[in-house]
Design a protein around this nucleic acid. Structure first.
Lengths: 276, 276
DNA sequence: CTCAATTTGTTCGTATGTATG
DNA sequence: ACATACATACGAACAAATTGA
């Protein structure tokens, strides 16, 4: 045997990742696939267009040919591209509009949007915990009715809602609250006594139950919206955590309070009384 | 000797994942680590408390001992837990408050919050593309000045901003716009002529440049906020895409846009929880 | 002090997945 | 397609430290 039958191949430790990918533990080919998928989604690659050659991609990302090939293979299985020997890889579809859920965040628009959603209520044994209060929030009532539901749109689940409704308000119309979305009902029935309504939005990641119910991967990104409604006395009468799939939702917020005429009946807060 | 010392070992194809983890291509031990980290973050496991034994976790998640051990090892390297042979694993710190950037989304609060941020401007060759307009947006001006910056907080980058400022407005005070955050300046200088201001927020994932600039993993979740400001004639004078780290930001929105003067008293504009 | 139970640490063998050239 | 290297994951057995009886 010669000293070096195939010379100094020096497989660079097989996984010394290119800089670009180094911060992520996710398999390389999946990261590459995600990059390419994003380029299709944002129109960088358009339907019918030829994708860069394997060589080009290999060059650009600094990965092995097999790796980028594996990535393209994923996209083909998803139906996003089609490959042809000798010709190249072509973008087949425009990705269907991902962010189809547009929530305009003011009270009327929101209520209107929410009323069109279809909730399926879920039985539970251990009632879900109340979301934590933030500084500036009002005080808690002694008892809340929990209501768990999954929101569907054409058969696909897109959000899970864990609602906590102040007990006495729930008791006023339990059958309604148990079958319909609570927020529109609440605002309709208690309109005169609403003192404060706020949403807080964070980017989260799906836990085991959520990922199961939304049929998404564990820890995939979500938008968590925490709704809080207080009456004029500063009592929290509604506290909900709604977890949306991160990839389908958009929140639109008007920065200038374009106060429609209706909002003229707004009532000022009276929080000074209880030492805010 | 019992009948089956090692019996039917049947190594179940080495990676036939338990149901719970099946939807994710991420290595198992990292998924488990994330679950445990979340439990520490949300107070399910408290500082000083003993974590479940390896055996228990192994049982709960249906993974091998070595795997769960690898997960705990990650947490130890992060300084979240400490392990002692023969005793167990203990939660060492309360996780520092992750979401320290609280953006109250109304124009005054937002401007005030943004003015405290420290931008470092970035040179660029290819000017960044204009974010896409949405239905309902105004019309575009013929020319915009792009401004790229990274926002820092105690040395850590938390957002990248790609601002497009209408050319003639930029030319009125180029030096100022090149050194300070544009939005507060703009609203101050053009206050009388603002016709519309809106934010749209989506959950996104960091592309190559963003992940590099924010020093986060490629494709890790982000909050993308698209700011648009139009003058009274419906001309888009400011269009910005700000990409925040997904794990540090919270958006607070008042649904009842009540009178700003009083609101200011109750909600401090930005409360930044102690970062360190 | 010893013993046993508990709990983490270590190692082996095997199978498969990822990534390179 | 192949040879190579390393990472991931499994199951099992054993070693070492801690605790309490």
């Amino acid at each position: 045997m010669p000293a070096k039958p195939k010379a100094q191949t020096r497989p660079r430790s097989a996984d010394a990742r290119p800089q670009m990918f180094e911060r992520s533990p996710i398999p390389l080919y999946i990261q590459v696939a995600t990059l390419l998928r994003n380029r299709i989604a944002d129109g960088h690659f358009r339907p019918g267009q030829k994708m860069p050659t394997l060589d080009a991609l290999e060059q650009e990302f600094g990965v092995a040919r097999v790796t980028v090939r594996q990535a393209v293979e994923m996209l083909e299985k998803e139906g996003l591209v089609s490959r042809q020997q000798g010709r190249g890889t072509f973008v087949s579809q425009h990705m269907r509009e991902r962010r189809w859920l547009h929530l305009t965040v003011d009270i009327e628009s929101l209520v209107q949007a929410i009323s069109t959603h279809v909730p399926r209520f879920i039985a539970f044994r251990n009632p879900p915990a109340l979301p934590a209060l933030l500084p500036g929030d009002g005080r808690l009532a002694p008892d809340y009715q929990p209501l768990l539901s999954v929101q569907y749109r054409s058969g696909e689940p897109f959000a899970v809602a864990a609602v906590h409704l102040e007990r006495t308000i729930f008791e006023k119309a339990p059958q309604e609250y148990k079958t319909r979305t609570a927020l529109p009902l609440l605002l309709q029935r208690e309109q005169a006594d609403i003192g404060r309504a706020q949403i807080s939005i964070v980017v989260g990641n799906a836990g085991p139950e959520t990922s199961e119910r939304l049929r998404i991967a564990l820890n995939s990104p979500t938008a968590e919206a925490r709704y809080i409604v207080e009456n004029r006395a500063g009592l929290v009468i509604y506290l909900a955590e709604v977890i949306y799939r991160g990839d389908c939702v958009r929140f639109d917020i008007d920065l200038l309070r374009s106060a429609p005429a209706k909002q003229a009946k707004r009532h000022p807060h009276v929080h000074e009384a209880d030492g805010a």
